[in-house]
Design a protein around this nucleic acid. Sequence first.
DNA 1: ACAGTATTCAACCAAGCGGTTGAACACAGG
DNA 2: CCTGTGTTCAACCGCTTGGTTGAATACTGT
Lengths: 120, 120
Amino acid sequence: MAADPLSLVFSALSDPIRRDIVARLAGADATVNELAEPYDVTVQAVSKHIKVLEDAGLVSRSKDAQRRPCHLEAEVFDLMTKWIERYRREAEERFRRLDALLEGMDEQSATDPPTKEATS
Amino acid sequence: MAADPLSLVFSALSDPIRRDIVARLAGADATVNELAEPYDVTVQAVSKHIKVLEDAGLVSRSKDAQRRPCHLEAEVFDLMTKWIERYRREAEERFRRLDALLEGMDEQSATDPPTKEATS
DNA sequence: ACAGTATTCAACCAAGCGGTTGAACACAGG
DNA sequence: CCTGTGTTCAACCGCTTGGTTGAATACTGT
């Protein structure tokens, strides 16, 4: 239990119903019953889905009589985008260097001999 | 089977080991054995992890003798970032409008009456 | 041809997940 | 004080998942 936040968020968004719920909450807050209406699963199942989103920090809930309106917490998105962008950038830079290396290869082939780790 | 691409990618990245593999592949291509070395699970388990990443389109593999080097395919990241950014933006715009509404409330309160669905 | 190395396949297991039904809880309003 | 509404809890079910072990496959180099 108590997996790391990143795992929780990615896992929460790996389900189509949960992604759809997030999509709809981006437009407006909604109650469990409202959220459950479009899907042909029971309201209990949707309640569980919302709990998963809540545990991941993606939604928060307030109390309004017996209703428990859901509200999207978009800040957690940053967690993901930061992770993704970090490695995307890293990979892209590696491509860039690889391209540069390949480009230099037909101009000269002995000025920079392949002695790995020359400088101690 | 054959879940939608977005679910596959989010699901693939919901595991810490798989995220770590992606992180390392962002720096350099690597073989299954190299990738498996740091973790205290069997190489078969890592092989399965890589298969999940492959099915999600996150890694591709080439053949080099008996080795099957893994290469990160960073383009799929775009799928996620586009999805995330769409709803993040939507949510942020909603906040913006809400703020504007709240700000306007102490200036006037009847120029735009709340008659929902007036046009039939 | 053979021995070693890299990887995957197959069968299995425990735990988790998405779903169900049925009961319980919480609150509002006549 | 009930009845209805909204939501959750609890137990259960079938399937998937992450892990294991053991065997099979694929290729290399001597």
